[in-house]
Amino acid sequence: MRIYERYIYAELLRAWVVVNLVLLGLFGFFELAGQLDDVGKGRYTIAKALGFTVEQLPQHLAELTPFAALLTVVIALGLMASRHELVILRGVGLSPVRIAGCVLKAGVALLILVLAVQSFVAPPLMQHAQRMRTAAVAGDSVAGDASYWLRTRDGVVHIARLENGHQPVDIEILEFGPEQTLTRYVRAEKADIQPSGVWKLGGVTVKHPADLNNAGARRAELDWTPSLYDRQLALLDRAPASLAPLSLYRYVAYLDAHNQDAQRYRVALWQKLALPLTTFAMLLLAMPLVLFNPRGANLGLRVALATGIGLGAFALLQAIGNLAFVFGLPAPLCMLTPGLALCGIALLWLRRVG
């Protein structure tokens, strides 16, 4: 690695850390402000609200990557320009293309990091935060670290885990009569939750008090309508953003195979898949702001322009995602088009100023 490359990477890293500290601090503040409305409900305390906010930060880090990448490049190279370092690099024969190449290499490393965060770090933290918040607001422990115990109006349900984030697996249902005596025990391998609220249990074993010691009756399927409370249903309804891309893909395929509406999860999946393209577009947009005017010293104007572009792009992507969900528009087309359009605009801008 050449000396100038190490220097550029160091400047980009410093700027990236500062930008993310500011952005995560801002978004974390708004997140905490929203959680304070529920403080005092059940066992939901300020400490739990702070914990919930902290566990949301990795997801915010991933979502803000395009915006942060744009600001990082503009600030890092803008500071180098204000110190006349870009002029020196140009003077020794370093072309804007080679400087841009260093930036894009750093962008690839950033995308690998963000992919790891949104696949392995953010999902478990978000899911843990949601379980903790729901249990605390409800006022009792309805979820453990890996399983769920739910008290229904006529019994108890134990769910070992949620496959792909939503499908209950390894379920035990204990139903009690008026005198709190066990009337039926049901064990199922999995459950398909229908839009009507009915659970289609698969791989079912049904036992009654008289034959608890026997194998019980086996059924391929059994329809069961749980008498769950709203807070318990919220516990099982994980936000699509809390699922890793692979889990989203599997769940979308599962819903499609069972002719269920998967648009909400399909949009979330393509929002995550479009992230690298949008980030690459932001890196391209940053180049003409700094590289083709190396003597420019008005860093504030450049940062303000980059902030406006980044906020506009972020708001546009969120709006398009909502429109795709509400109107059932093709998710791949809706989520990839903004990134492709931004790449086109950046290339035209580069050609004009270059």
Rank of each mutant, 00 (worst) to 15 (best):
R2A: 12
Y249C: 04
L236V: 04
L94H: 10
I88C: 02
T65V: 07
Q180S: 14
R184F: 02
L277K: 04
P209M: 13
G101F: 10
R153L: 11
D37S: 11
L236K: 05
F314N: 00
T152K: 01
L228Q: 09
L162Q: 10
R90L: 08
L110P: 00
D230K: 06
F67V: 02
Q118E: 13
H84V: 06
A274P: 01
S242H: 09
L12C: 10
R98M: 12
V186E: 11
L110C: 08
W270E: 10
L316D: 12
V97D: 01
Y249A: 14
T279L: 10
E31S: 09
Y254I: 09
V18H: 00
L269A: 04
E11P: 00
A33W: 14
E172D: 08
E179H: 03
W16N: 07
A331G: 12
V18S: 04
V303G: 07
H60T: 08
A49Y: 13
E179N: 03
V103H: 01
L348P: 05
R352G: 09
P209V: 13
A262T: 04
L246S: 08
A210F: 03
A215H: 01
Y148M: 01
L61K: 08
E172A: 11
L64T: 08
V137G: 06
Q180W: 13
A135I: 07
A297D: 14
A220Y: 04
A313F: 15
S242F: 11
A331Y: 08
A324F: 06
V121F: 11
A331M: 09
V252T: 15
G42W: 12
A268Y: 02
N213F: 15
S141L: 15
G328F: 03
G144P: 05
L311Y: 05
Q167G: 06
G197R: 11
V204W: 10
L305M: 13
D230A: 13
R295I: 04
G34L: 06
S141P: 02
E189L: 03
G344K: 06
R184K: 13
L162H: 07
Y185V: 14
L64R: 08
L248C: 07
P245V: 11
I88F: 04
R133W: 10
R218W: 08
H158G: 11
L104M: 14
P195T: 13
I193Y: 08
E172V: 12
R43W: 05
Q232S: 08
N164L: 15
S196D: 15
C334H: 07
L285A: 07
Y4I: 06
A81I: 05
T152H: 01
R14K: 14
L89A: 00
L333K: 05
E163W: 08
P245W: 04
G78M: 06
R133G: 09
S147Q: 09
